[in-house]
Design a protein around this nucleic acid. Sequence first.
DNA 1: CGGTATCCAGTCCGATACTG
DNA 2: CAGTATCGGACTGGATACCG
Lengths: 123, 123
Amino acid sequence: MATPGTDTGIVYRADCPSRPILDQIADKWSMMIMAVLDRPRRFNDIKRRLEGVTQRVLTQTLRRLERNGMIERRVLPTSPVGVEYSLTSLGESLREPFGHLYDWTTAHADEIQKCQQGYDERS
Amino acid sequence: MATPGTDTGIVYRADCPSRPILDQIADKWSMMIMAVLDRPRRFNDIKRRLEGVTQRVLTQTLRRLERNGMIERRVLPTSPVGVEYSLTSLGESLREPFGHLYDWTTAHADEIQKCQQGYDERS
DNA sequence: CGGTATCCAGTCCGATACTG
DNA sequence: CAGTATCGGACTGGATACCG
């Protein structure tokens, strides 16, 4: 047995406050939506920028982000009606960590693909 | 209509290289596993630290992380057999962006909870 | 335009049992 | 210890239709 006293690693207990939050925000579409909201944008504008997202999923994700205080939903008094989504200051503050993650993915995309190929050939 | 020339926001095309990567790594368990791997750890050690994860899901997630080159799997010549997981240098480089995200969640946990309460009461 | 409602297929996930 | 195999239910996501 290893000396117990030296083992000080993280333990993610079920009641760890960051766990439910990661559940809510650390998914693909949430991150892409927030990346796209560099300024207020309307529903279909967002939809066009996230190639492949369905209306249903986009609506659901926007609702969840709104509930979590990341974005704000504003109905425009136009005809026909328009709806504009924008980042709150809370959401704005999340763009930076998300940005780091995004930068990391673009920087290491090739390396990851090579790892996958190697793994698949081995197995 | 807004002046088209000024609209330079991000568009996440389907062939954007970061999208499949986010699919693979931006999930709850992956992030928690990598946070826990501050040093090489064995399967059940990891399992104990991620309260609530099932053996099945942990195995699947570890396999995917291994395939993507984030972690390394090493069978220990012990009896009974042991298996040790550790971060690769690629995985190590991801801990920093993940760390930022984690710090953000802990820093804003209260604020998010209040937003959720407000939203739920309004609706 | 920006949704909601409904249906349905595919996927995920937990529980359980078994193995080298 | 560290898995694999299997099964059934829950949840998710896509397609479609319809609405204010």
